[in-house]
Simulated assay, not measured.
Amino acid sequence: MEKGTKVCKYCKTEIPKDAKVCPNCRKKQGGIGKWIVIAVIVVALIAAISGGGEDKPKKVENDPVQNTTDNKTDTEKNMTEDTSAGQENSEKDIFGIGETAEMNDVQVTMVNYTQNSGSEYNKPSDGNEFVLVEFEIANNSDSEINISSMASFEAYADDYALNYSLNALLEKNDANQLDGTIAAGKKMNGVIGYEVPADWKTIEIHFKDNVWSSNKFKFEITK
């Protein structure tokens, strides 16, 4: 075969390399490969759309009971273990004090919260109080995550949006502030502060493990 030629895929005649139509059989050359690529892209997009629903965190049991099955039969023990496994892996929307939520290999626990009326030179507005909420975040993923008290959290008191409060954080004493980077395999513990109406009933806090993610851990405090 001479340089600059190719073989017609239909009649096998040697033709110019850049020929779009075979001079012998008059059939078009090429053009199939690009349609295969387009078809593969379309299939991949459909698969991504159909499987791209929002992830939900699952509840992690912090203190499993070890001794309650000692006097049970093997069948009863297996049933208990199956039930526990189902509870650990079940999806849940809102988590409470002491509960651990896990998603994308990140575990978040709302440890506790405190209320206070401030100090001598740091008072909330009339009718309000400070609320400090303690979280522990464990990064079990393979990459570091960034935590920002302002960007990673959003909060609501009785469905009204709350603003991050620097004045509330002045009352955190020795506690850490929830800001910084958590390396892979490491943890962070700290508090985030809000100024809320003193007669609040429910505070809901949403935490995003990635500022650009739509996946949220949702925690709720009820008086």
Results as ranks from 00 to 15, higher is better:
213 S>C: 04
57 P>S: 09
110 M>A: 03
36 I>G: 13
121 Y>R: 03
218 K>M: 11
61 E>D: 05
196 V>A: 01
120 E>F: 09
5 T>P: 03
117 S>W: 11
189 N>P: 05
8 C>F: 01
98 G>M: 01
14 E>Q: 11
5 T>S: 10
114 T>M: 12
140 N>M: 00
204 E>V: 11
171 E>F: 06
220 E>D: 01
89 N>E: 04
9 K>M: 14
80 T>R: 07
207 F>M: 03
5 T>G: 04
137 I>T: 09
125 S>F: 04
77 K>R: 14
47 A>H: 02
46 I>V: 15
44 A>N: 03
177 Q>F: 02
211 V>W: 05
11 C>N: 07
163 N>G: 04
69 T>S: 11
165 S>V: 00
109 T>Y: 07
165 S>D: 01
47 A>T: 09
115 Q>R: 15
187 K>H: 07
222 T>W: 02
54 E>K: 15
106 V>R: 01
88 E>T: 14
103 M>Y: 14
127 G>F: 05
154 E>F: 10
168 A>L: 07
22 C>W: 03
169 L>C: 03
123 K>Q: 13
1 M>S: 10
96 G>V: 06
193 G>Q: 02
195 E>P: 05
162 L>N: 04
107 Q>H: 13
72 K>W: 12
61 E>T: 14
163 N>M: 01
27 K>L: 12
37 V>R: 09
79 M>P: 03
66 Q>H: 13
53 G>C: 09
171 E>M: 08
125 S>R: 14
49 I>S: 10
142 D>K: 09
106 V>P: 07
21 V>W: 12
199 D>F: 05
163 N>W: 02
166 L>Y: 12
114 T>C: 08
25 C>L: 07
213 S>L: 03
162 L>A: 04
140 N>D: 02
129 E>S: 07
60 V>Q: 13
80 T>I: 10
153 F>W: 12
55 D>F: 00
12 K>Q: 09
42 V>M: 05
88 E>G: 14
116 N>D: 15
165 S>P: 02
36 I>Q: 11
127 G>M: 04
6 K>R: 13
152 S>P: 01
79 M>K: 15
206 H>W: 14
207 F>W: 12
100 T>G: 05
39 A>L: 10
98 G>S: 04
3 K>L: 15
39 A>H: 07
36 I>K: 15
121 Y>F: 15
112 N>I: 05
101 A>H: 00
205 I>L: 04
208 K>I: 00
152 S>E: 01
23 P>H: 06
88 E>F: 02
2 E>L: 13
191 V>I: 08
33 G>K: 06
122 N>R: 01
221 I>T: 02
176 N>A: 09
7 V>I: 15
206 H>R: 15
162 L>S: 08
220 E>S: 14
103 M>C: 08
201 K>G: 10
210 N>D: 15
113 Y>M: 08
106 V>T: 10
148 S>A: 01
141 S>Y: 00
128 N>M: 06
175 A>M: 09
122 N>Y: 14
13 T>F: 03
40 V>W: 10
190 G>D: 01
96 G>E: 12
91 E>T: 12
51 G>T: 13
205 I>M: 03
55 D>S: 08
52 G>I: 10
75 T>S: 13
131 V>Y: 09
25 C>I: 05
84 S>K: 14
140 N>L: 01
132 L>T: 00
15 I>Y: 12
110 M>S: 02
